[in-house]
């Protein structure tokens, strides 16, 4: 009986360890800075948002279908100023996006806001029906109107909203 109990306990502990380890190693996306609710999102958390897709030519010169959610919706969820609030000093807010390898790109907040533009910048998680691969995913930005793909940043780890302080 005692043996059984300890066996069970060790099993539970082991399971717990495995689960925490696994949870720790999954890539997440952090949204922070000038936000009212800082967010740390896992890929599964994106299911709560509407899925959007774009068919666009990537760097390889070929057309691909990227699926994901609108970057704007994530920022809205984090309470970033948007729409009618995007006036006055809020017009000098920027969005700094960082990748796992340290690569960084920058957008001005109005570039992402539907009151300012019809372009929907995507936080993609899928390409041609498959999850984005290592080195590209789990999260990648797709900005269809950018002719050069340099801001289509791969392996997105963090999004920081800030004020230009010049």
């Amino acid at each position: 009986m005692f043996l059984k109990k300890t066996l069970f306990a060790t099993l539970v502990i082991q399971l717990f360890c495995v689960v925490t380890l696994w949870a720790q190693t999954e890539s997440t996306l952090a949204i922070s800075g000038e936000v009212s609710v800082p967010l740390t999102l896992k890929k599964s958390d994106l299911a709560a948002f509407e899925t959007i897709s774009h068919k666009v030519k990537d760097r390889d010169g070929k057309e691909h279908e990227f699926k994901g959610v609108a970057l704007f919706e994530l920022l809205k969820k984090a309470g970033v100023s948007n729409g009618a609030q995007l006036r006055g000093e809020n017009l000098v807010k920027y969005v700094l996006i960082q990748a796992a390898d340290g690569y960084e790109v920058l957008y001005a907040l109005p570039e992402i806001d539907p009151d300012f533009t019809d372009q929907i910048i995507l936080l993609a998680t899928e390409k041609d029906g498959k999850a984005l691969e290592n080195g590209e995913g789990p999260f990648r930005i797709i900005t269809p109107n950018d002719k050069k793909q340099a801001r289509w940043i791969r392996e997105v780890r963090s999004i920081k909203v800030g004020f230009a302080k010049e």
Binding site: T25, A100, E155
Partner: peptide, 9 residues
């Protein structure tokens, strides 16, 4: 980072 995508980086 604790992220397995960073293994060996």
């Amino acid at each position: 980072t604790g992220d397995s995508a960073d293994n060996g980086r």
